[in-house]
Design a protein around this nucleic acid. Structure first.
Length: 159
DNA sequence: GCCAACGTTGGC
DNA sequence: GCCAACGTTGGC
């Protein structure tokens, strides 16, 4: 079995929070319309890979819990739905542009590991996509050491 | 709400 | 293939 990869996926809590994921259990990660993010889901994710669930565009942006890749990639159905915000008229069913995976709830942290807290220890993270200037990727890989560091920050209570 | 940073689009 | 214009993301 190849080495397990770790991921970070952003979601706006007003749209879809960690609590919403806990309620539904598993969610198709629809709506990603960025090729780099798509390629991670289409080519690099494996079922069972751990995901840091990140809340963006909110009062305290940061990692709020753990999820897991819960399916193989498959075409994002919203790209074919007329009237959907995610409808892509250039995409054809026989040649879908946008792919997704299902994301399964694992657990919610007791406290948020805030972006601010991670920035305060930026030098310990090394090169970390999340902390790069102007980063806007909604799906990104996380190094195993970075992943462990965030877990230990969560264990310490976060914030 | 502002705005910097970035990706995408489309005219040429 | 360049690049200006535009739309979006996301921290603050």
């Amino acid at each position: 079995m190849p080495a397990m990869k770790h991921w970070l996926m952003k979601s706006e809590p007003d749209e879809f929070s960690i609590d919403a994921l806990e309620r539904v259990g598993t969610e198709p990660w629809s709506g990603v319309r960025n090729y780099q993010a798509r390629n991670y889901m289409l080519k690099d994710m494996k079922v069972g890979d751990p995901i840091l669930f990140y809340h963006s565009n909110c009062a305290v942006p940061g990692v709020v819990g753990i999820a897991r890749v819960a399916s193989e990639p498959y075409p994002d159905p919203t790209q074919f739905e007329r009237g959907s915000d995610y409808h892509d008229p250039k995409s054809k069913p026989e040649e879908p542009r946008w792919w997704l995976v299902d994301v399964g709830f694992e657990r919610k942290f007791a406290g948020t590991v805030s972006l601010e807290a991670m920035k305060a220890e930026a030098e310990k993270f090394g090169d970390f996509a999340l902390l790069r200037r102007g980063n806007r990727l909604s799906v990104m890989p996380v190094g195993a050491a970075q992943y462990k560091r965030i877990l230990s920050m969560a264990k310490a209570g976060g914030q």
